[in-house]
Design a protein around this nucleic acid. Structure first.
Length: 578
RNA sequence: CGGGGUGUAGCUCAGCCUGGUAGAGCACUGCGUUCGGGACGCAGGAGCCGGAGGUUCAAAUCCUCUCACCCCGACCA
């Protein structure tokens, strides 16, 4: 492709709204443009990258025995009502009506639609197992879209669903997808980690996230420094250990007028936050419950939900708190509280603690777990972090990373197949409910994650397998005839060798071209100009490396093609055309 | 949804407080000089000052409403 024929509106200046590298660079490199919040145009260069990721996903999934289909994006409400998610999913589900007033939604995920297809078309155990996927635009009306493609409302996703006769086969496919996903992200040239994860509102009981490691990632994952356990911090199992005792003393009321948060009370009473019992009031499936944590810990709602076995879980409103605790928000405490109490392990056996008195403007000191609120259920409720003890091995501790979640696989069981009646006849002619798994990859997010992981101050450094082009041919002086002739020759040679090459045929100054080259981030740059040409030399430079190497003009195309070929093979990518 | 902020040329922004005929840099067009890491000169094109209403002789500027976008929080693949 010739640069002058390509729409690449690069920007010298930083777009005001872009906060993270991927967003900034994709806008500056002319790959995306925002149309509405969380909704973007893909320009040619951005689309090429998206297509590259798609191609890798397709090739690996097809090789793993999956079949591609395409489901509608506009989904009738009935299907969502049948699964119960029409009411559960909330405002993220964009609902709309057709001209006749019938209700629809824009599909944020397709368990219902796919299960509906399968229940209509599959009757026999002979047709199973089945793994169907699609690559499609999804819409989720996010509370707060941000960071460009990292958290858009409209985004490209590969979603797959598998259907099986029994648990064992479904588990086998789960492992198959785990391995396939690992191959996909490796082929994309990304450094990632598969971690155990919460199943959220998808449901099910076993799940792994694939996290691309990047400091700007929105997720925190932990891994054990001694065994191979790795999990999202929301989910990571921390070894149960008794709480600290801060001495035995009698319970005492203290006035804390208007002082609510742990931070405020801690300052007011000059006590460290770890001496506090944080009491959070939640509504679980319509019923009030209390979560107790040490003052310096964070509640993991995922863990809390799992511990309760609740379908819905939300924080209580201030009004509900007043009703349930007889005190305004900020003064709740476990002592004498008439709610089910769930406490983090860290509070087991604690004493000498400070907590709310369930009375406006009042806290209690000298609180002792065994004496003052003996009825609590203990569980691992807090968010894990660096240094916490690993529950899966003897001595290990967690280290922390930031990650971008690009893939997620779930074992679903029979949740949707039961709700929608996806059944088959077994060999004995008995009707059985199918086992299901669901597997997602954020395709557009993977593009963003790749940039988060691979960039410098000047721009993007694409992994070869997903770069918009493999090689940028950069004539430093286009209006020099010798340079132009040599460039055209090289361009033709490279194309015939199967290299995806972009020729910067603009009559621009060298500086402009070099800066755009760095910004766009094509992995290989072949620079050609009158100075080198005099000695029959051109320069080949790898984006991200500080210096290039001189090649003889006659053999440059072949050498570059060989290097690229070798790197493709390393990433397990097949030959691509132009 | 709560809190904060911003809407002026394609982009980044000044002008608004203190009302008086619309600005800069970059980008774009033409000509000339330049040319291996974001050149320079000259000449040009380009804005319903987000929208509606109001105050005023006069509104980008003051007031009210509204819409959009951004940030922080709760939430989430």
């Amino acid at each position: 492709m010739r640069y002058t024929r390509l729409l690449v509106p690069t920007l010298k200046e930083e777009p005001a709204e872009a906060e993270v590298a991927s967003h900034r660079f994709m806008v500056r490199a002319g790959m995306i443009r925002q149309v509405a919040r969380g909704i973007y145009d893909f320009l040619p260069l951005g689309l090429r990258v998206l297509h590259k990721v798609e191609r890798i996903v397709r090739e690996e999934l097809d090789a793993a025995g999956c079949q591609e289909v395409l489901l509608p994006m506009v989904i009738p409400a009935e299907l969502w009502k049948e699964s119960g998610r029409w009411d559960l999913y909330g405002k993220e589900l964009l609902r709309l009506n057709d001209r006749a007033g019938r209700e629809f939604c824009l599909g944020p995920t397709h368990e219902e639609v796919m299960t509906d297809l399968v229940r209509r078309e599959v009757r026999s155990y002979r047709d199973l197992p089945l793994n169907l996927y699609q690559i499609q635009t999804k819409f989720r009306d996010e509370i707060r879209p941000r960071f460009g493609l990292m958290r858009g409302r409209e985004f490209l996703m590969k979603d797959g669903y598998s259907f099986h006769c029994d648990y064992e086969d479904c588990r086998r496919e789960y492992d198959n997808m785990y391995a396939t996903y690992s191959r996909i992200f490796r082929s994309c040239g990304l450094e990632f980690r598969a971690v155990e994860a919460d199943t959220g509102n998808i449901g099910g009981s076993l799940s792994h996230e694939f996290q691309v490691l990047a400091d700007s990632g929105e997720d925190t994952v932990v891994s054990c420094d001694s065994c191979d356990y790795a999990a999202n911090m929301e989910k990571a199992e921390i070894k149960a250990a008794p709480g600290e005792s801060f001495g035995d003393s009698d319970i005492e009321e203290v006035d804390t007028p208007g002082v609510r948060s742990i931070e405020e009370v801690s300052q007011f009473l000059s006590q460290p936050p770890e001496r506090f019992i944080k009491t959070l009031i939640y509504i679980a499936d319509g019923k009030g419950v209390a979560a107790l944590l040490r003052g310096d810990d964070q509640l993991s709602e995922a863990k809390f939900r799992a511990c309760l076995g609740a379908e819905t879980l939300r924080m209580a409103t201030d009004d509900e708190i007043e009703k349930l605790t007889a005190a305004p928000q900020g003064f709740a405490g476990p002592v004498g509280l008439d709610l089910e109490l769930y406490a983090d392990y860290r509070l087991a056996g604690c004493s000498g603690m400070v907590t709310g008195a369930n009375k406006a403007g009042t806290h209690l000191t000298g609180v002792c777990e065994k004496r003052d609120f003996p009825g609590a259920t203990f569980a691992n409720l807090r968010v894990a972090g660096a240094g916490d003890a690993c529950a899966r091995c003897e001595y290990g501790h967690f280290v922390e990373y930031r990650g971008v979640e690009v893939g997620h696989i779930f074992y679903l069981g029979k949740k949707y197949s039961t709700a929608l009646g996806a059944t088959y006849l077994d060999a004995d002619g008995n009707e059985q409910v199918m086992e299901m798994g669901t597997y997602g990859i954020g395709v557009s997010r993977t593009v963003a994650a790749a940039i988060e992981q691979n960039h410098d101050d000047a721009g993007i450094i694409w992994p070869l397998s997903i770069a918009p082009y493999e090689l940028l041919l950069l004539p430093v002086k286009w209006n020099d005839e010798a340079t132009r002739d040599a460039s055209e020759k090289l361009y033709a040679q490279l194309l015939s060798l199967g290299v995806e090459v972009l020729l910067d045929d603009r009559d621009e100054r060298a500086g402009v071209k070099f800066n755009d080259a760095d910004l766009i981030g094509i992995p290989y740059r072949l620079t050609i100009g009158p100075r080198g040409l005099k000695e029959g030399k051109v320069e080949l430079k790898r984006r991200g490396e500080s210096k290039g190497s001189e090649l003889a003009l006659e053999s440059a195309a072949a050498e570059a093609a060989a290097l690229i070929g070798a790197e493709r093979a390393r990433l397990r990518v097949e030959d691509g055309g132009k």
